[in-house]
Design a protein around this nucleic acid. Structure first.
Lengths: 310, 310
DNA sequence: CCGTGACTGGAATATTTTTTCTATAATTAA
DNA sequence: TTAATTATAGAAAAAATATTCCAGTCACGG
């Protein structure tokens, strides 16, 4: 694999016009430090597990770089130490120290492992394309592929059917409202909870209308005139959600709805509604597009608030 | 038809005034992109067609290397010019001449194209795309676009880094377990709740360890030996989640974790762990990939159960 | 409180890698 | 066949890159 001893070929004697430095015989010392204290991982996966195992025992900077290396493996594979050092916000020497700590001769030796991984990845990438076309193994990988592709598809749709003016309306409602109430049941509840979390990060008070303890109607009754409601429901619409949206609309409450069709019972009663219709079959609908929309909304609100404050 | 190669840093010719602006002799890295002797292909596919088109007019050795370069793009991307020269059985200088013949400054310039090709399949290429789009207008529509694109990117990553064998392990654990406990806090809780919903649709009993009413430790104590736990946490990891995962692992409970790095405190203690690392910055991380993985897992379990029953 | 040892950042140095240069070989046209 | 022209190989110079060293800092234990 890798030779423990550095090859010391006699350097071609440069003319002494250039700054020729003295050459001490420091090779013995070098050999000591260059000696492998342990066997350095030869494959990327081995290196990953090695880093994982040793992580706790590493020093602060070594941990920092270890994390960066695992998170940005292709940067480490392709860039120079100096560049990587800048990106990872450590010193070049730290990276060399890291390499030695894991038994490599130096950075270059370590980098080989990352490069090998890159080559294996790309070659298998081509194979994957082939195998996808050819054999239709019903393995678990293809399930993930199918859902990922469906997710990509739905995000593309989301981009296309985005209504900037509705986004703006929704953002204005949220930022000007008192509290935000989140109304969702079943599958959609995950989106509501995400909004609950994200809004709280912006220090916007949000209340989940989750029906816990059979309190849903009481929770709804707590919506005040200047509050806003974000309702999320997809076909088949939970009847109680649709009903409550109607109720709230009758009372003049502002409702923003995230649903899947203009014909949804939510859409007609809402101040603003987003219809995410990715056309996929019922059973395979995912929350990807709604989650993405929710995140965009919250970040949009955050930006708006920031601009107001400045 | 090979044009005579200009000397490096040749004085400006009055004749070829084809929009070529003069450049100062600045030793800057930008130099190579700023001025090219002729239009050097910037992408690998352009380079391929360029080589193909010019091939007949190239000299013997240049043809030889051109063929090698197209056949062994990975080698050209990663090795040094000396190594490539040996492998291609040409001289290093031939390779430099080749690069110049196609308008590059030298071998390094040419190699960039090969490296970019290698990166296109992986992440960190996204960094460039990201920064490019950040320059855009900061309207609300572009926020949605940015998040949708980031989501697409993270799904692509998910597809590439999918570990089918881990998926299978996780599916086996879930289908053979008694009850499934879902452990998550904060942002990740949305994913846990989605799993709760989806598993219940498969008539698999799942219990949320949500810490409601300060009952988290009691909830954890209810995990029985044949149960399984799905823990979800991303950086910065909620300490209590990490702690409880360690606790459960000590007791020999099977933990499946969804997290963001092999260095996550969850990963090391889990029976199976999925590291979703989309490389994006903290603030822009989305739940899209985790949600997609969760959905795939549940559907995978559903398929497995169906096959068992038949 | 001080000494000890490990860690870190930054600059100096060593090494590798690329590019240029030139004598020689090959090719072509007269 | 020979002279002119162009391509090539090899080696030296230049540039880029990696590694080492040292002094300053920090944490820990006496």
């Amino acid at each position: 694999m890798h030779s423990a001893i550095d090859k010391h070929g006699a350097p071609p004697h440069a003319s002494d016009s250039a700054g020729l430095t003295l050459e001490h015989d420091i090779r013995d010392k070098n050999r000591d430090t260059a000696r492998r204290m342990k066997n350095a991982p030869a494959s990327f996966s081995n290196l990953t597990s090695e880093i994982t195992a040793e992580y706790a025992g590493l020093s602060r900077q070594l941990q920092k770089f270890g994390r960066y290396a695992l998170d940005h493996a292709d940067v480490v594979a392709l860039e120079t130490v100096t560049t990587i050092a800048e990106l990872a916000d450590v010193q070049p020497s730290t990276i060399v120290r890291f390499a030695k700590a894991f038994g490599y001769d130096g950075f270059s030796d370590l980098q080989k492992v990352f490069r090998t991984r890159l080559m294996e990845n790309t070659s298998s990438y081509r194979e994957r394309i082939h195998s996808l076309e050819n054999d239709d193994r019903s393995g678990t990988a293809s399930v993930l592929h199918a859902f990922a592709d469906a997710g990509i598809e739905s995000l593309e749709q989301l981009k296309q059917h985005a209504h900037p003016e509705r986004m703006q309306q929704a953002i204005d409602i949220i930022r000007n409202a008192g509290d935000i109430h989140l109304l969702a049941q079943g599958r959609s509840y995950a989106v509501a909870h995400y909004l609950h979390y994200a809004l709280s990060r912006l220090e916007i008070r949000s209340l989940l209308i989750d029906g816990a303890g059979g309190m849903m109607r009481h929770q709804v009754a707590r919506v005040r005139p200047d509050d806003a409601v974000i309702a999320i429901s997809f076909s088949p619409y939970t009847p109680v959600v649709a009903e409550l949206v109607g109720h709230l609309a009758d009372q003049g409450r502002k409702v923003i709805s995230i649903t899947d069709s203009p014909l949804s019972p939510l859409a007609s009663r809402s101040a603003v509604s987003f219809e995410i219709n990715d056309g996929s079959e019922q059973a395979f609908r995912s929350l990807i597009a709604p989650i993405c929309l929710a995140q965009s909304l919250v970040v949009g609100v955050g930006q708006a608030l920031e601009q107001t404050r400045n």
